[in-house]
């Protein structure tokens, strides 16, 4: 890989992505982990832009960083166990071994390393370097593909129904229970907000007196 501006930008965004991801899974403070998750997602958005997918890069920033990461931060705030005593469980060594072995396996398949070492038929050798240029109107083509009945219209509608059902289900799950609804908090607030009860007090003794 020769050193061009593009490869330098690629290395920068890869470092942001992988460094942020490593800090997400290792940091002790969960809130810092969420911020590092935002950093890592931003690196992925940069990789999308480098792959000439500008629409997906924008969606990555808007949906992932702007919505999903913020939702995760809300959940962290609502469940105050930010700094746990032990961030990882007692099988983290086995997890590390599994992750490293899987990465070595994937790396040996996707890179031409094994072909250079002389092992026949192991690597998939994805060595494409000069793909054809992207069509000018790829974003318009993407939009047209989503509403084309011959292509992605049915999956698009199914995805919207899935999102709708998931959001309604989430709201129903976190809805306060019936006992919480009948909590006397609003009544107390109304009494505090309305400091004019002497009128009622003044009426009541009169009534009592008249009955006597």
């Amino acid at each position: 890989m020769e050193l061009t501006v593009e490869s330098l930008v690629f290395l920068l965004f890869s470092l942001i992505t992988l460094g942020g991801g490593l800090l997400v899974v290792t940091t002790r403070n969960l809130f810092h982990g969420a911020l590092f998750l935002m950093l890592s997602l931003f690196g992925v958005a940069g990789l999308f832009a480098l792959l000439t997918a500008p629409f997906l890069a924008g969606i990555q920033v808007v949906v992932y960083i702007g919505a999903i990461a913020i939702l995760i931060i809300f959940a962290i705030m609502l469940t105050p166990q930010v700094t746990a005593t032990r961030p990882s469980n007692n099988q983290w060594i086995a997890a590390l071994v599994v992750a490293v072995v899987l990465f070595a396996l994937l790396a040996s398949i996707v890179t031409p390393l094994m072909d250079e070492l002389g092992v026949e038929g192991w690597g998939a050798s994805f060595t494409e370097t000069d793909p054809p240029p992207v069509p000018e109107d790829s974003i318009a083509d993407l939009g047209a593909a989503f509403v084309d009945p011959q292509r992605f219209m049915l999956p698009f509608e199914v995805a919207s129904i899935l999102l709708m059902a998931a959001l309604v289900g989430a709201v129903m799950m976190v809805r306060p229970s019936r006992e919480d609804d009948e909590a006397p908090a609003p009544v107390e607030a109304a009494e505090v907000a309305e400091p004019a009860p002497p009128r009622a007090d003044a009426v009541e003794p009169v009534l009592v007196e008249s009955q006597e």
Partner: peptide, 29 residues
């Protein structure tokens, strides 16, 4: 940049996430 560089970054990110899923205690993590 050759294609396998992107695939390598993707594989590394996936394995980082796998390690996190297997080793973290907090459900949000």
């Amino acid at each position: 940049v050759p294609l396998y560089m992107y695939l390598l970054v993707s594989a590394a990110l996936f394995c980082i996430g796998l390690y996190g899923v297997l080793s973290r205690r907090n459900a949000i993590a």
